[in-house]
Each structure stands twice: as C-alpha cells, then as structure tokens.
Amino acid sequence: MTIWHETESNRLDGLFDGVFSWLLEQFDPLTGGFYYARSSVLDDRFTPDIESTSQAINILLRHQLLDDMPQTMKEKMIAFYQMRQDARTGYFYDHDPHMKKDEVMVHRALHYSLNSLKRLGASPLYSLPVKNQVAPNYTKSLSLYREKWDSIDLRNSWRGCDLLASSTVYFSQMDETTLWSYVDAFAEYLAEKQNPDTGLWGEGSLYVQISGAFKLHTFYRRYQIPMPNQDRIYRTILHCLRTEEAIDMCYIRNPIDLLSYMEPDIPESELQEISEITINNMKRLKQKDGAFSRELAHSPKAPNVAQVKQGEYYPNMPQAVELGLGLKEGDMNATTQATLIRKQLYYLWKKHPKSISTNFWDGGQGELPISKAK
C-alpha cells in the first residue's frame, strides 16, 4: 500500500467518529423506523420515514451489522414496512400525504421497502402494483413505456434521469420474458439519448448531469449491463471534480459510485487526486452531532427536492416532503451516502476497509436501542 493510501484512508475513517452513536439515536423503538435527523426525533411533527429507515439499513449492511441486529428490533422494523403497505394497491406510503404526489418518492419507497424487507428476512403482506393492476398505464406495453420516457423533461438531468430510472421499478414485477424485453428496450432508449461527447444525459451543470448519470447507472448495475461510452464519462467526471464546487453530498457520492461501477483503469496520480478531492469535500459536510449533512449550510428540510442553483432549470418541482427542521445538523440521507463513498473509495484503492463500528450493539441481544423521548 502506498503512503498516500495510508494517509487518505486514515483521514477518511476519522470522519466517521460519532456516526454510529448518532445512528442508534435515530431509531424509534415504538414504530421500528429511523428518523431523518436529530431535529426530527425531538419534534412531534415528524415521524420515521421509509427512506431514512432504508438508508439506516444500508449503513448497517455496509458495516456487517445487520446480521447481529437484536431480534426484537428486527421484528419491529419488519412491522414498520408491512404497516406502510397499502393492501389495495401494494404500494408503500409514509404518513405525509404529499409523498403520494411525488412520482419518484412513490417508486423509490416501493423499491426501498421490498429490498429492506428482503434484507430483514421478510416479505410484503400484500401483492404488488403490477399484479394488482394499479401500476401506471405505461407499464402495459413497450410503446406506452416509450411514450412515458419521451415525455420526461431532461433539461434538469438529475430530476429527469431520476424519473426515467424510477419508472423501471415495475420491471421486476413482470414475468422473466417480459422483463428482459423491457430492459433491452430501455437500454436502447438510453443509448439513443446519451451525449457521445460527455457520456452524460440531459442538461444542467456538470454535477447535475453526473447526478443524472448516477440515477441511470442503478439500472445498468441492477441488470449487469455495461454503461456505454465509459471513457467519456470518466473524463467528464475528472474535469468536474477539478473545476466545480460540490455543494451537496450527492455531488460527492455520485461520481465515486459511478467510478466504482465502471472500474476504469485510473492512473495512480489521478486516483490520488480523486481521493483527496472527495475526502476534502466530505469533511466540509461533517457536523458536530457526528453525522453528515446533505448541504454545506445545513441539512435540507425536504431531501426529495434537489438543491437548485440560481438560474438552474428544475421542471415540475415536486411538493416538498419535510423530514426535519433544516438545521446545521447531520441527516440520514447524507450519512448513508458517506458510508457508501467510504466503501467505494476502498474498492477503488483495492483495499479492504477495517472495521470502524466495533461494539455497535454492545452485546445487547434482544435489547432495543432507545432514542430520546419526544
């Protein structure tokens, strides 16, 4: 291992001091869910939500902590998801009525809930939207799916590609033959729309476009399809890291996750540069409570609404679903991203990360962590 690897890995790991004690304090033993931020725990207007709970599970999974979760806690978490499934439609909803109005949130909650239940060793109680025949009309044929994709505005790549990628959540509910015909059609569609010079999709700042490519890479990764023009994407990412300011944790995570997916042959000097830039950016978002915030000035109240620079286009801004008070504090959205960045950086370094979460459960099998009472 080179000297710079050792230096950067120590700097990276040091940023996670306090993260795991913060994480346990976000758990609500009454509902079995996790809160978004510390301000959410202490304010009666907020309740644990599907995305924050699923993001907490991702943190536990990445640090090999899920298997040792106390059984009583696991059962509470399973109940958390199952109670949020609508028996008629099969969708999963949070209590906030605005959540149902955001197409991306609805699709993401469905994906998050199914994955989380599987990781907890459980299943949904009811059949899913395709079987219940309540999935959007565009899922009924490839031509209708194509019309749906064509209707999505890509002038903000991040939002547009999020809508494109989340529309594929229904693929997995189809029979094998239909699924792969739809997967192939979507891959062909994306190839048509990709910018051959940058390797990205749509418009916006470089970080917005890279964030759009990140949203689409989830499709490519899930179905093990190589993303086209990866050499162009790599050069665009490197140029962006060198020239743009990362004002959002997503802007730090998305390039690193793309690189770990593509596995380009990165020269040692460029890998060192990428690592240093990434860790320096993460450090700016570390908060006093031990966790990380999504944005530089504060944690956003509503993480479903992307931060938009002045003059930047954002079509059909969704209704904000507020999960916290927007204070200068850590939040679950950013903290789960930070743990993924760490994992992917170690992967790019070809190095196995050491454990930074020892004694997490403190030997309390069967004991529920207790967050502060409201």
Rank of each mutant, 00 (worst) to 15 (best):
Q85M: 00
G90Q: 06
R88M: 14
A79E: 13
F80S: 06
R84P: 14
A79K: 15
D96P: 00
R84S: 05
Q71E: 15
D96S: 02
G90C: 03
T89H: 09
Q71G: 08
Y91H: 09
A87T: 04
M73R: 01
M83E: 13
D94E: 13
P97I: 02
P70K: 02
G90V: 04
G90H: 07
G90Y: 13
F80C: 04
M69F: 03
F80D: 03
E75Q: 09
Y81C: 05
A87I: 08
K76C: 05
Q85G: 00
D68P: 05
I78W: 15
Q71D: 15
A79W: 08
Q85E: 00
T72P: 05
P97V: 01
R88H: 14
D94R: 00
M77R: 12
H95W: 12
F80Q: 06
Q85Y: 12
M77W: 13
D96G: 01
T89L: 12
F80G: 00
K74S: 07
Q85H: 05
M83L: 10
D67V: 10
T72Q: 13
A79F: 09
D68V: 00
A87L: 07
A87N: 09
K74P: 10
Q85T: 00
K76E: 12
D86P: 11
D86L: 07
Q85A: 00
E75W: 09
E75F: 05
Q71F: 10
T72V: 12
I78N: 01
D86F: 10
T72F: 11
Q82N: 07
R88S: 14
H95T: 04
D96C: 01
D68S: 03
P97C: 06
M69W: 03
D86V: 03
H95E: 02
K76G: 04
G90E: 04
M69R: 04
P97S: 07
T89A: 05
M77Q: 06
T89V: 05
R88C: 07
M83N: 08
F92P: 12
E75N: 05
D68K: 00
I78Q: 07
T72N: 14
Q82R: 02
F92E: 08
T72L: 13
M73D: 12
E75G: 00
M83R: 04
D94N: 05
F80M: 10
K74Y: 04
Y93I: 04
D94F: 10
M69K: 06
K76F: 09
I78H: 09
Q71V: 13
Q82M: 03
Q71K: 02
P97Q: 10
Y91F: 14
F92S: 09
Q71M: 13
A87E: 15
K74G: 08
M77E: 04
M69C: 13
F92M: 12
D86G: 03
R84H: 09
F92H: 08
H95R: 15
D86K: 08
D96M: 01
P97W: 02
K76Q: 11
R84Q: 11
Y93F: 15
D96F: 10
K74W: 04
E75T: 00
I78R: 03
D96N: 06
K74E: 05
A87R: 12
R84E: 15
T89K: 02
F80V: 02
D67Q: 11
R88A: 15
M83H: 13
D68C: 01
F92R: 11
Y93R: 12
D67T: 08
